[in-house]
Simulated scan of single mutants.
Amino acid sequence: MFLYISHKILTELRLPYQHESLVLTEMETPVIFRIREVYYPVIAAIGVPVNLLAIVILSRGKCGLSKCITRYLVGMAASDLLVVIFDPLLRRVGQSYFRPSFLYITPVCSLKTVLLTASTHLSVWLTVAFTFDRFVAICCEKLKTKYCTERTAGVVIGTVSVVSCLVSIPWYFIYKPLKIIDGVPWYCDVTWEFFNSVAWGAFDITDRILTPCIPIFLILLLNALTTGRILVASRVRRRLRGSSNGGNGTDHEMENRKKSIVLLFSITGSFILLWLTQFVYMAYRRIANVQSYTSYSDPNLIIEQISFMLQVLSSCTNTCIYVLTQSQFREELKKAVKYPLNAIVKIMKP
């Protein structure tokens, strides 16, 4: 089996590349690229059903979460599902195992890039929106009743969706056909204007700052402020309860707040950990002025591929977090798993 460094890989990296493909045999290919051939199909096979399952279970509203939180979680699951469809499923698996196909037609792969970028922006910024919602709920008592509502959550999700699509449209115009066959443009070759134009350079840098630089900073800041507020409030409530009833009894408000915080920190912590490698590498690449990769064994290329793999994994982790942190979600999941099994048993009974 042959692996090629051509438009398939280097277009993903948004870096200059040679038009002549570098051909390497399987024996010459680093382990990370062999892992990649299996990794993305597995992510696609897992990511689609788990996100669909999360959407169905959360939409039923029986997980003990407020309608506001539920809306954000459903929106995040839907955006993660889109990322899985457009990245590991269509972009990696589709182009690797089903070629040539319509996915290689220039307008199709250009549109796919726009949709992938939009869904990635949406997934990232909905995580920020959810973090901000929990910050308001805990730290801003006066604003809480007006902002932390189902209607506001819907407006925020809709706004983020529209903006994510609009800021991603320019990516459609960075490609040109590599070949014209029977009047049909094939393959996506990055135009040299993208690398030589000041405007495109500014747009590329702005896009990378928007995702993930600013979101990571905002999430860390909001979580730090939320943590500080929780610690202060916890000490005050312990003193008040201790002076009023000797510290006995269960503080139901603090228990509910604790569950909400565990969910928040689990989601945002997972997001930061899985995006951190790409964030750090992007900063290093700019500082070290890494412009291109010479071979498969280039350490910079290998690190970047690892960062891509971790980023895609972030689209599949939230459902696992719900299972681990939310007991009612686990119960609903059990019912969802048992339902088709019970139906099969009933059908098979004489």
Rank of each mutant, 00 (worst) to 15 (best):
H7P: 03
I9N: 00
L13V: 12
Q18R: 15
E20T: 09
S21E: 15
M27D: 15
M27P: 09
I32C: 07
R36S: 11
Y40L: 05
P41Q: 06
V42F: 14
N51H: 09
I55C: 06
V56N: 04
I57H: 10
L58C: 10
G64C: 14
I69N: 11
T70E: 14
Y72C: 02
Y72M: 08
V84W: 00
F86H: 00
D87P: 07
D87F: 08
L90D: 02
F98E: 14
R99A: 06
P100T: 12
V108Y: 14
K112D: 14
T113K: 07
L116A: 10
T117P: 03
S119D: 03
S119W: 01
W125I: 03
L126N: 02
A129E: 01
A129I: 00
F130L: 09
V136W: 02
A137V: 13
C139L: 10
K142L: 04
K142V: 11
K144Y: 05
K144F: 03
K146G: 02
Y147M: 08
Y147K: 03
Y147E: 05
C148T: 07
E150N: 12
G154H: 05
V155S: 04
G158A: 07
T159H: 07
T159P: 03
V160K: 02
C165V: 01
L166C: 10
V167F: 01
S168E: 01
P170R: 06
W171Q: 00
K176I: 11
K176A: 07
I180P: 12
Y187G: 06
V190A: 11
V190Y: 02
W192F: 08
F195G: 04
T206S: 12
D207A: 10
D207T: 08
L221A: 03
N223T: 07
R229D: 15
L231N: 15
V232S: 08
A233P: 07
R237I: 12
L240N: 12
N248I: 06
D251G: 01
H252G: 09
I261A: 03
I261G: 06
F265K: 08
T268E: 10
G269Y: 14
I272S: 07
L274S: 03
T277K: 09
R286D: 03
Q291A: 06
T294I: 12
D298T: 05
L301I: 05
L301A: 12
L301Q: 00
I306F: 12
M309A: 11
L310K: 03
V312D: 00
L313Q: 12
T317Y: 09
N318Q: 15
I321L: 14
Y322A: 05
T325K: 14
S327W: 14
Q328T: 02
R330M: 13
R330V: 12
K335P: 03
P340R: 14
N342P: 01
K346V: 07
K346L: 11
K349F: 04
P350V: 07
